[in-house]
Every structure is written in C-alpha cells, then in structure tokens.
C-alpha cells in the first residue's frame, strides 16, 4: 500500500504540472489547447537533444526546453490565436486552430526529431529501498522533487509578482482587467508562453525516466483535459488537485484492478462522467467558468 501511495504522488506531481499549463492557457484565453501534449513532447525532444546528444549538463538542457517552448508559445499566441480570436464570429473557432496547431507540431516533430522512441542516460543511479515496502529509484525521487519545486515556484510567481497579479486579473475578468489598465494583449502572450513553458519543462523532466516519442502527444492532452475537468477549468488549485487525484487513481487502479484486465482507465472515465454529472464545474471551478 505504501508503494501505491508513493507511485501516486510521483505520477501526480508530473500530471499536476501538465494540467497547470493547460489550465493557465484556458483561464486567460478561453482556449482549449489541443496542442498541449505536443508541446510536452517537443520539450522532451529538446532536452534529449541537448543532454543526450550534445552532452550538456541536464539543468542547462532543461533550461533550453523551457526557453524553446516559451518562445514557441509566445509566437503561437501572437500570430495565430490572437488574430483568430479577434476576427471569428464564434469563440469556438479557436478549437479548429488549436487542433491545426497540434497537427502542425506533430508534423514538425516528425520531420525534425523522427519517429523513434528516444531516451537519455539516467541522471542519478541507484534505487531507494525501505525494507522492501517502498522501492523507488533515486532519479524518480529527484524528478518528483523538482516537479513539486516548480509547482511551488509557479504558484509564488502567480501570487507575488506584478506579472502574476496581471495574469490573475485577466483570468478573473478580462474586460475589467483591461479597464484597470492591464495590457491584455501583452499579458495574454506572456501567459501563453508560461503555459507552454510548463509543458516543455515537464517534458524535459520526464525524458529522463520514460523517454519520449512522437505518439505521446495526443494521449497526454486527453489526460490533461481529464485533470482539468476533475479540478475545474481555469483554476490553478483545481489543476494541481486534479493532477494528484488522477495520479493517485491511476496508481491505485493499476494495483487493485489489474487482475480484471486492463480496465483501470475505463473505470476512471466512467467515474469521471458520473462525477461531472453531479458536479459539472469540477472540484474547485466556478459554474460555467
């Protein structure tokens, strides 16, 4: 049982980071970012290239992932989402654009990095073993720790800086924020870049453990959607909670339900649908947010 909880926390810490980026973008732009999974994969490939191939230090490679994705996110917001949101009659048209960008990023990944599964050498060797009740490799502990550290850093950034305050204001009420003198266009761009950066960061962190391949993007996006729904769309605390809950459910499900075959995800999906029928806005969300 202890092992299951540890696995759950480990999964949850990564999931929470993915969900954070998605929910941030949703809160600011009201855009369902289908390309989030692809951004995560690009982050993984950038770290792979710099750390695995060029032999740079891991931290530096991680930084490169963040910078690449932040620039990419900013460009996507500035030249694609911004103009389309301003010009389309119905807000939902951005979903077509988001899906188009997901296809485009998939194509770019295919051409630049190829379709093979890629992995990097372990950053720390050894396995933590507590009396055979909890067995977990040291690198997983390190990644989990880094992920929680990044989440804490992100929350403090949102709470205590001027940019964070502006972003929270836009998420709360876009028009009111603009009336109070917040440069909405500029901060939308910064927010999108920040969300993309989080996806890149978690991609870079995870490449050391699970590796990275082209097909990971889509399933990651679906998982991220689920976490956001559990917690409530557009709410930071909800995304973190949703991430940890899904991580826990997955760990427990794999441990308990594995004897009945591969039905963990079916059970999670059905539970989620029942849950949302009772509480449509998720745990922390505001109604019709």
């Amino acid at each position: 049982m202890e092992q299951v909880i540890v696995n759950g926390v480990y999964l949850g810490s990564q999931y929470a980071m993915i969900a954070l980026g998605l929910t941030l973008i949703f809160a600011l732009m009201n855009v369902l970012n289908f390309a989030h999974g692809q951004m995560y994969v690009i982050g993984g490939f950038v770290t792979y290239t710099f750390y695995g191939q060029f032999g740079l230090p891991f931290v530096l490679a991680l930084l490169m992932s963040c910078v690449t994705l932040a620039v990419l996110g900013a460009l996507i917001e500035k030249f694609l989402f911004g103009p389309v949101i301003r010009r389309s009659a119905r807000e939902e048209s951005t979903m077509l654009l988001a899906a188009g960008i997901a296809f485009l990023l998939d194509a770019v990944i295919l051409l630049v990095f190829g379709e093979k599964q890629r992995g990097v050498p372990k950053i720390v060797d050894g396995v933590f073993n507590w009396d055979f009740r909890i067995i977990i490799p040291y690198d997983r502990i390190l990644i989990c720790f880094l992920a929680i550290l990044s989440i804490v850093a992100f929350i403090s950034y949102m709470q205590f800086t001027r940019t964070g305050r502006a972003l929270r204001a836009i998420a709360q009420d876009r028009v009111a924020a603009e009336l109070m003198g917040v440069n909405v266009n500029r901060y939308s761009m910064i927010g999108f870049a920040l969300g993309a950066m989080l996806a890149g960061l978690v991609g870079g962190l995870l490449v050391t453990i699970t590796g990275v391949n082209l097909g990971m993007g889509g399933p990651t996006s679906i998982k991220a959607f689920m976490m956001v729904m559990i917690g409530g769309a557009g709410v930071i605390s909800g995304a973190i909670l949703g991430g940890f809950i899904l991580g826990m459910l997955e760990a427990v499900g794999l441990a308990v339900l594995s004897q009945y075959g591969d039905i963990t995800y079916l059970a999670i999906f059905v539970a989620l649908m029942i849950f949302l029928a009772i509480r449509p806005q998720g745990l922390m969300g505001k109604p019709w947010g």
């Binding site: 679906i222 956001v228 729904m229 769309a233 079916l266």
Partner: peptide
C-alpha cells in the same frame, strides 16, 4: 440527460472522454 447540463468546454471535454469510454468498453 446528465451530461447535456454541461456547457462550453466542459461538454466538449466530457464528450471527448466519452469516445475513449466507448473504445475501452468495446475492448472489455
């Protein structure tokens, strides 16, 4: 009956999940 109470992206996401539910049910 239950899920049409949801709106906007919530409905979008739950229908997306529904696709997965049906696929996994067909597998099981």
């Amino acid at each position: 009956l239950p899920i049409l109470r949801l709106r906007g992206v919530y409905f979008a996401m739950i229908t997306l999940v529904l696709t997965e539910v049906v696929r996994l049910t067909a597998l099981a």
